[in-house]
Amino acid sequence: MAEETRLIEQLIDRYEGDVGMLIPMMQDIQAEHGYLPASDLRSLSKRLEVPLSRIYAVATFYTSFRLAPKGAHDVTLCMGTVCYLKGSPDILEAICREFQVEPGGTTTDRLFSFQAVNCVGACAVAPVMLVDGKYYESVTPASALEILNGLYPDEDASEKEDEA
């Protein structure tokens, strides 16, 4: 039996095959893999007799579900009012262009997963970017790219950026 099918069978047992528990089942799949693998959702669809299109709709509706594996790092860019006024759209564009990534997506080399959010509550030091929970203040497009390029393991330039 394939790995994904075993997990699905466990979930069916855990929730007694109740279609109403679709979301908890999907949460458990994500807890297991860090994201929702397509093969698991296909098995779940077959087993619960819920069309795959509907499961996909649920998976894409809730931002907490992810359909691709997470990157090694979490990058969050604040797009709240103050950050917005102080230039976060330009930062967003620079990051998207440089790393070929979209908000909600992960870089193809899985370096980081990228989110654009509404406010992180640090307006005084806007614009703000978070990397793995760490706040970077008064970011510019150039500094943001430097910080992110610094995430590659063989480049050890992160200290310099902190001071920049």
């Binding site: 397509a38 959702l41 069309p51 795959l52 299109s53 509907r54 499961i55 996909y56 709709a57 894409t60 509706f61 931002t63 359909l67 909600g104």
Partner: peptide
């Protein structure tokens, strides 16, 4: 059951699963 809504808010579109 081929078509569905994918995404939400400004990103919402009609699509198929995956």
């Amino acid at each position: 059951e081929a078509l569905t809504f994918a995404g939400r808010l400004g990103q919402m579109e009609v699509g198929t699963a995956f």
